[in-house]
Nucleic acid binder design. Structure first.
Lengths: 130, 130
DNA sequence: ATAAGGGTTCCAGTCACTGGAAGGTCAAGG
DNA sequence: CCTTGACCTTCCAGTGACTGGAACCCTTAT
């Protein structure tokens, strides 16, 4: 398969697939003309990567997940631990964003939003203790 | 004030303050020895920036907020619109992360997490339609 | 004289792509 | 046979918001 074909099959842009090769996530063969030649296995890995990335796994996590995926003697505990760590990071990020949103919502609610300059939002930003 | 003093006063690392000067968010004077010499106004701006960044505003948003902050004839509506846009982006990001977390939680719950290779997490990742 | 603890600049790296330039390859149509 | 267009290739630069480090200067105290 050409890069265009696996791109269509995986939903990943060709640029991204080249990048994944560059960082060693995949190693497609090359044809006589220098074009990449993707096997079914490569295509499956790309689908795997697309899904893992869409779940927010870093490319380094993806590398580990791929090697677990290919390791028939893996322990599911290893996969689970990795996933749990990722969930923890996501949860922390959500909390951080929620905190911001709560603070911002309060400020936005207080602001008249008219033509006058008085603005609780700017006043808050200028306060050192907030 | 020296950079170390405003760093302590604002809570921002000196490196970050230099970066803010580089991108034009502040323009501190220079002493005869080449050292940056921060005014009270600079210090207040840095506090403002620290707070705005902690609420997740981008540096470009910060630039606009700072210019509104300094504009005595501003309309609070402009500030509010900017803040609302930011809240919308945060909300969208939270939704995206929540979606990931729900999917991941479900997968983690299904995984035995033992020494055996069978793993619903990897099986999901390998599925093209998920 | 020197050592410590500031300050300065500049360069490189982070993460995961993305855009663009310059050029090679291939199949189809005139 | 030539061209056109759609592919493919590599390489370089840029994104955002810093952060680390090297190499060097300034000030003060000992």
């Amino acid at each position: 398969m050409t890069i265009g074909e696996v791109a269509a099959a995986s939903g990943l842009p060709a640029k991204t697939i080249r990048y994944y090769e560059e960082i060693g996530l995949i190693r497609p063969d090359r044809g006589a003309n220098g074009y990449r030649d993707f096997s079914e296995t490569d295509a499956r890995k790309l689908v795997f990567l697309a899904r893992a990335r869409s779940l927010g796994f870093s490319t380094e996590d993806c590398r580990r997940l791929l090697s677990l995926y290919e390791d028939r003697s893996r322990a599911s505990a290893d996969v689970k631990r990795l996933a749990r760590g990722h969930v923890a990071r996501i949860t922390a990020k959500i909390k951080e964003l929620e905190t911001m949103r709560v603070a911002l919502d309060a400020l936005v609610a207080q602001c008249h939003g008219d033509a006058r300059p008085a603005c609780p939002i700017l006043e808050d930003l200028a306060r050192a203790d907030s």
